[in-house]
Amino acid sequence: MLVLLAVAAAMGLLLFAFATLFGKDPHQVPFGLKDKPAPDFTLTRLDTGETVKLSALRGRPLVLNFWASWCGPCQAEHPTLARAAKHFGGEASFFGVVFEDTPEEARKFARPMEPSFPQLIDPQSRMAVDYGVTGVPETYFIDAQGIIRDKFVGPLLDMQELASRLHALQQATGPVGASR
């Protein structure tokens, strides 16, 4: 009787574990910075060497795209982002951040593409770690108050998808003054 009870208890625990843990993708890395203030950064532009600070970009929605020249999907998505920057440039700022790459390689990658939106160099990927980047490409959507509202993991190939995320960004209103 005691054995049966013990086996039933162990089975119950196992079932509970399976019920709570199944259905989740173990490879999906949680994103803890959603609806949190975007960490400040000061980076330099790949083309002009000019300094760009996040605090100076506040007041407009911001799209930050992390990419690298060695990343195939980044090459595939770049034309979509370039078109989006041209089309929605009046409503939001677009910036690319070079991830784990050398400025030379990044320039070689960016050169054939038409100059669409500024690219920033992130030495030693410090800023990428600050933003919780898990790989490239990843695109962050930050509202006018500096709150990270969303991030898209993988290549953004659908213009409609990008447009709807931008629209949601414009609708979002974050707590003013919450960003650092």
């Binding site: 574990a17 890395v29 910075l33 933003y131």
Partner: peptide, 19 residues
Amino acid sequence: ARYGEWALLEPPAHGVNWL
């Protein structure tokens, strides 16, 4: 704060982690 408790190779002993 960035990657959730997923970032810890040894889960902290609380909640469902006790299992």
